[in-house]
Amino acid sequence: MATKTAATITDTNFNFPNQKSVYKGKVREVYNINDELLVMIASDRLSAFDVVMPKGIPFKGQILNQIATQMMAATVDIVPNWLIATPDPNVAIGHLCEPFKVEMVIRGYMSGHAAREYKAGKRMLCGVAMPEGMKENDKFPTPIITPATKAEMGDHDEDISREDIISKNIVSQADYEVLEQYTKALFERGTELAAQRGLILVDTKYEFGKTKDGKIVLIDEIHTPDSSRYFYADGYQERQEKGEAQKQLSKEFVRQWLISNNFQGLEGQTVPEMSDEYIESVSERYIELYENITGQSFEKANTTDIMTRIETNVVEWMKNN
């Protein structure tokens, strides 16, 4: 399937050497190789309000994969991660891990979901108190961790408190304390990296897994525009004082477009039609996000025959490793 400019990956069906199974998430497809390695393919699917949109976004998978792998390299000194290699622009290969069934969401500012809950009159989010008298996009006195249970494809992630995670034995207390510690350290590093690019890391989510030898590692994406919200630092304070919307780098622009077209993933709602022009504009925004977040020019991979390219690169890597 394609737009005017480039083909997209909306589904894969590879059969790699020693492949045992495949898991298809909202955006990524994960191939288990001999119960030792995972081959993670970042598709061009677009998910918003926990619903996968009907059309892919050109280069989105490449952008997410390349930001995530660069950010893992930039944080490996503080938190171990699953990554071994990136043999293709859309592919990451790493150690097989058993994922924890929670997403560690951390918020430095009251934005997005937190702001919507706050406006609805709630002052507790995932068992964490939010101070009175805050405005949307104000900075929290200290970042708050507001975990979510990980949903299967198409289901909504749900807020959950630290106490419930531990009491329901979703994660043991000892492991959860490590997840919290890692989450805070990653957010601190992410904040520093963003500041170097003139950005504010507003909120983000991290996912963790356990390797076969019991080591807790960071998995999946990190500090991407799909998993994180960024503001431009320049003019932030002025906009807050004037009560203006913040200039931001995230896929919030997609959510806002969907809301304006009467879609929030609620029962009975229909995903609005996305024209080729709109798809193209989303692709351009993702490229802008990549260049702002990484400080590098984006180089479009060859999309003439994406599937063959991916398969060739992965199989070649396997032969040599």
Rank of each mutant, 00 (worst) to 15 (best):
E221V: 02
D164Q: 14
G198T: 09
R239M: 07
Q196R: 15
G209S: 08
V178W: 07
A194N: 03
D213H: 06
E244Q: 13
L186S: 05
Q181K: 13
I170H: 01
G154N: 12
F253T: 11
D175Q: 08
E188N: 14
E238T: 12
E180D: 07
E252L: 11
L179D: 01
T191Q: 12
I166D: 00
N169Y: 10
R162C: 01
E152T: 10
I165N: 00
G243N: 05
V202R: 01
N262F: 02
L193G: 04
G190C: 05
S227G: 13
D164V: 10
T204W: 04
R229I: 03
D159Q: 14
R197A: 08
V202K: 00
E177I: 07
T204F: 09
D155F: 12
I170M: 04
Y236E: 06
E267T: 13
F263L: 05
V217M: 09
G265D: 08
P272N: 11
Y206K: 02
K247M: 12
A194R: 04
H223Y: 05
L179C: 04
G214F: 13
K184W: 04
K242R: 15
Q173K: 15
V217R: 04
D159I: 10
M153S: 12
F187K: 06
D213G: 02
F231N: 00
D159N: 15
F187G: 00
G265P: 01
E158G: 06
I165T: 06
A194C: 10
A151Q: 09
V217T: 11
T183A: 09
P225D: 06
L179K: 01
G198V: 10
T183N: 03
S260T: 13
E221P: 03
T191R: 14
A195S: 13
D157V: 08
E180H: 09
Y176T: 09
F231Y: 15
L218R: 02
